[in-house]
Simulated scan of single mutants.
Amino acid sequence: MNHDSYDRDYIATILKTTKTIALLGASPNPDRPSNRVMSFLLSKGYQVFPVNPGQAGKQILGQTVYSRLADVPQPVDMVDVFRAAEFLDGIVGEALALETPPKVIWGQLGVRDDVAAAKAEAARLKVVMDRCPAIEYPRLMA
């Protein structure tokens, strides 16, 4: 798939069918983009599981933080990645190793790795990179 641009229906379908999200790189700091996006997603009715090893066991926006993706207590539909692009390949590997892999890997603004995307797509996962669901949601779901 060409990740330079996305069909509106592709992203809208992901946003409509996703119910649970693991947010990797979640921050308790309200000034951080990950915190603002997590707040937005919660406000839209998504169940969000923050993942950040430095915050594990604490709470962010009332949600328990998990150390790693495998610690999230239930399968998730989407993994939203607030980590540097160099980590995306490893994150895809972690996601694929889960008993129930997610349906979507979403790389936030600036997070793009076409090799990692190809690996995820070969396993039939959908991939969005260099986009933010808090920007796409109002644009496509309003």
Rank of each mutant, 00 (worst) to 15 (best):
E99D: 14
A116I: 14
D80E: 14
L98G: 01
A97N: 12
D89K: 12
T100H: 13
G90L: 07
K119M: 12
L125P: 10
R83K: 13
V104C: 01
P101E: 10
E86Q: 13
R124W: 10
V115M: 11
A122S: 13
A122K: 13
G90T: 10
D89N: 12
V92P: 07
Q108N: 00
R83D: 09
I105A: 01
L109T: 04
A123G: 10
A117I: 08
E86S: 13
L96I: 05
Q108V: 00
A84N: 13
T100K: 15
D89L: 14
D114Y: 10
W106K: 01
A95H: 05
A120K: 11
A95F: 01
G107A: 05
L98S: 08
I91W: 00
V104K: 03
L88T: 05
A85L: 06
L109F: 08
V92C: 00
L109C: 06
D89R: 12
D89S: 13
D80T: 09
D113T: 04
V115Q: 15
F82M: 01
R112G: 09
A118C: 12
R112S: 14
E99N: 06
E94V: 07
V92D: 05
A84D: 14
V104T: 14
A117M: 09
W106N: 01
P102L: 10
A122F: 03
E121A: 09
K103A: 15
G93A: 12
